[in-house]
């Protein structure tokens, strides 16, 4: 489980000469912290971080709102065409993005969004994966809670906001973690829609340590470890929500 991560960390602390020992070595002879300062100052990583952070935050918030709304409709509301729409939504997951990449790029280019934050976050303001995840979760919530709320005259919006969302913290935390992770680590799309360094994201920055002449492994892995840390911190911070579960007993009607 740990080996790739250990390999990343130890490579990030090696001199370039040590990387290609054969068979590979897991620990550096001498720890080179300078790889970190070297890698992080060679490119404007501060700016990359800011861009990635901004885009990721907007995308995560966007997905939490849009996905939970749609999931609520698919799981809890009854209306004409609901199942057909859900099937349509699901079907968008089944097309390899490699094929929709160029058309999506054309759209963004015609919008004049190249090199802008719009191009980076708008396409990921929702996620069918997230809708599906929340829908499955909402299905498990007993209907008695919302029936009680409805008897008191609550609208669908109130039920969604006051009943369903508070009950769904584990699922929302899961969605947040994965939305964060996917946006944070996205590579090909940010690469395509940005060309200036001051619009680029972390993952594109990491790739810049590779070229046709080979890869500067220590620098690339140093950057990769730094980029990975926020995800791990977020995971540690949110995992108590997965664990905590819903204290159903507390809101007995």
């Amino acid at each position: 489980m740990l080996i790739p991560f250990i390999w990343m960390v130890s490579t990030s602390l090696m001199s370039e000469v040590e990387v290609y020992q054969f068979p590979p070595r897991l620990f550096p002879k001498e720890i080179k912290w300078s790889n970190y300062t070297g890698a992080l100052t060679m490119l404007p990583f501060g700016r990359f971080f800011l861009n990635t952070f901004l885009v990721t935050t907007i995308a995560v918030l966007g997905q939490l709102i849009t996905c939970s709304m749609a999931a609520y409709a698919f799981a809890r509301l009854r209306f004409k065409g609901r199942d057909g729409l859900f099937a349509l939504f699901m079907s968008t997951m089944m097309v390899p993005s490699i094929v929709t990449l160029i058309p999506a790029y054309l759209i963004v280019a015609t919008f004049g969004w190249m090199n802008s934050y719009w191009a980076l976050f708008t396409p990921i303001l929702t996620s069918v994966w997230g809708i599906f995840l929340l829908r499955q979760f909402f299905l498990t919530i007993p209907t008695s809670y919302e029936e009680a709320a409805r008897l008191e005259g609550a609208s669908e919006w109130t039920v969604y906001w006051k009943v369903i969302l508070p009950l769904s913290r584990p699922a929302l935390a899961t969605l947040a973690v994965f939305a964060f992770m996917n946006t944070w680590k996205d590579f090909l799309w940010p690469l395509l829609v940005t060309s200036k360094n001051d619009m680029r994201t972390l993952e594109v920055g990491i790739a810049m340590f590779s070229s046709l002449q080979g890869t500067n492994w220590p620098f690339q892995m140093a950057a990769a470890v730094v980029v990975l840390l926020p995800i791990l911190i977020l995971f540690m911070a949110t995992q108590r929500y997965f664990i905590e579960g819903i204290s159903l007993s507390g809101i007995k009607s």
């Binding site: 709304m69 409709a73 094929v99 759209i107 396409p123 969604y160």
Partner: peptide, 18 residues
């Protein structure tokens, strides 16, 4: 109306490309 926000995004960036 619950579905619209997601739908707009999907429509423009996934369904039309599809």
């Amino acid at each position: 109306s619950f579905i619209t926000p997601s739908f707009v995004v999907l429509f423009v960036f996934v369904l039309i490309p599809l």
